[in-house]
Write a protein that binds this DNA or RNA. Structure first.
Lengths: 159, 159
DNA sequence: TGATTTATTGAAAATCATTATCACTATCAG
DNA sequence: CTGATAGTGATAATGATTTTCAATAAATCA
């Protein structure tokens, strides 16, 4: 970890391009960072990727980029509020585009097969907003994750 | 990972002692497992500990127990529904006693200093129950975690 | 525009929490 | 009480994430 240029900040996602957002915080626009963000913009809004997966995808499409760079870029983008970091069980972290919508979408994970389903629930985000306000916190992110066993795995286990 | 004896199960926390609960699933009662659970019962109900912290505490109070054993015991206890596994940011996992109450308590984490505050919110657990039911999942666990910056760190950053 | 400053990159080594291995011990069912 | 086998401890192995360091490339400014 390093991410020096500055201190954390509540959210910096409003109308401005990547370069502006980065420079504002002392970061620089690089082709690698553009590629990573483009990748996220090419897939479904609510789709999540791990560092490894991002690396695979980019290499597959001919880009020359190091896994270290992926990790560094992910940190920066989370810090800038461009991406959200997800703890979908397992051992690795996942990332998804941070839009006004994603803050209302949550995850249901099957601990057997690892399948992840998304679902919307505004009331949950509301709780997060309220809770941080009453305690004087600056809200950065919140996530509601449910762990369970999906129907398929249930029958698979019974057999 | 191994935890062989059986397949996952929804929750096994009802009225019976540790030995019974363990044996029912083919696990054995050992002094190490007792010590770990006692430790959790000695601290506040909503307090969470990492594997490392548990090991420290036990060694400090004179027990001779290996860190490997801690990890193995934690897996077993999560599997039996005795403990809940928490993803409180950072890189390590935390565990806390699983009571009828803890399922309604959630976490607010300061990403600066790492301080964690608990809060109750039944409506959130309800969403989890509803969501799993409509999708046919067996609910194992759910957690709502909010990440932000606490008041102290905010002023600390401003200065 | 060109020079200067310094963030960024890539590759490889280093971390560090968690897991697996293996020989030995202890629990539990019969 | 005894055999079958789960559990333990010590240590090696894993694997995701970080750090290091020399080389490169944005941003800034003259």
């Amino acid at each position: 970890m390093m991410i020096e240029p500055n201190q954390p900040l509540p959210r910096t996602n409003s109308g401005s391009d990547l370069k502006t957002v980065l420079n504002k915080e002392g970061f620089r626009l690089t082709s690698q960072r553009q590629k990573i963000l483009e990748l996220f913009r090419d897939i479904a809004l609510d789709h999540h990727l791990s560092a490894e997966e991002i690396h695979h995808q980019l290499v597959a499409q001919g880009e020359k980029i190091s896994i270290s760079t992926i990790y560094r870029a992910l940190h920066v983008m989370v810090r800038l509020g461009l991406l959200q970091e997800l703890e979908l069980a397992e051992d690795r972290k996942y990332y998804e585009l941070s839009t006004p919508f994603t803050s209302h979408h949550h995850h249901l994970v099957c601990v057997q097969c690892g399948a992840v389903q998304e679902f919307e629930e505004v009331s949950i985000s509301d709780v997060g907003v309220g809770e941080t306000q009453t305690r004087g916190f600056v809200l950065l992110n919140s996530q509601f994750t449910i762990y369970g066993v999906c129907p398929l795995c249930q029958s698979r286990l019974r057999s």
